[in-house]
Amino acid sequence: MPMKSLSFLATLSLFALIHPLAIASDPSPVQDFCVGVNTPADGVFVNGKFCKDPKLATANDFFFTGLDRPKVATNAVGTSITPVFADNLPGLNTLGLAFARVDYAVNGQVPPHTHPRASEFVVVQEGTLLAGFVSSDQDGNRLFAKILNKGDLFVFPEGLIHFQSNVGRVPAVAFAAFNSQNPGLITIANTVFGSNPPINPDVLAKAFQLDPRVIMDLQVKF
């Protein structure tokens, strides 16, 4: 085979390998909308949902109410999250969007976590938050953090570890938006210390430079 043909085939093979990695967000829809339903009798399976017959879609499929209602933050970290995803707003299906309201108790936080499939922005409606993210190892694990007050917005790049913490003296409220209908959620502490089955404590002890007994205590907690 001529050298030029070999070179072309090698280039084509390399492109085939790297091209899937270039898709960085949800696929664009090829129809006006795909109102998500859970039964195959109603339509075609797309992006994790079946599509309702477009003729049967109504305005209510694209409507959500209740984001004005505060929730008491009673979980272990002092937050309550009201998600608006395709599961409870069917018209979001295939649109590459998701939203959430976050209520923070005093000293409440959304602990360090990452969304593997989405960037996020947070807008503060009430209160004062400390928000930040950490860059990758390649970029030196730099912390980008900011105090946010009412009306302020902060962006978290896709896949990077980030957090928000209420640093004010009163409860806080923020709204979040994602450029994926299923951003995914990996909470660092839960994932590392709460895996099922647990990660070998000796592995984590070396990774975190801690006594294995401390690791086992953390694994019990999470």
Rank of each mutant, 00 (worst) to 15 (best):
K4V: 09
Q209R: 11
T79E: 10
L17W: 11
T58M: 09
S5M: 10
T58L: 12
P201L: 06
K146Y: 10
T114F: 15
D68Y: 02
P171K: 09
S180L: 01
Y104M: 10
S136F: 02
P183R: 04
P111A: 00
G78Q: 13
T39Y: 01
L97N: 06
K4E: 11
A59F: 01
V124W: 02
Y104C: 12
V30Y: 11
T58N: 10
N38H: 05
A73R: 06
V220Y: 01
F50M: 12
F85V: 14
V214I: 10
K206P: 14
L67Q: 04
Q219D: 06
L12K: 13
F208R: 03
L129K: 05
P171S: 10
A118R: 00
I23S: 11
F175N: 07
L92T: 00
M216S: 06
L143Q: 11
F178I: 01
P197C: 11
P20F: 00
F222K: 03
T128W: 01
N93G: 13
A177M: 12
T39H: 04
S165W: 06
S195W: 02
V106Q: 10
R117F: 03
D32C: 04
F15Q: 10
N149F: 05
V192K: 03
V110W: 00
L204S: 09
P111G: 04
S135Y: 04
H19Y: 11
R101H: 04
N47L: 13
F15D: 07
G91M: 09
T79G: 03
E126L: 13
S165L: 15
T58A: 11
D42G: 06
D152T: 12
K146R: 15
P54G: 06
I81L: 02
A100F: 03
A100R: 05
C34S: 10
A189Y: 00
Q31I: 12
A176L: 11
F8A: 13
Q181K: 07
V37F: 01
H162G: 10
D217H: 03
A10Q: 15
T187C: 00
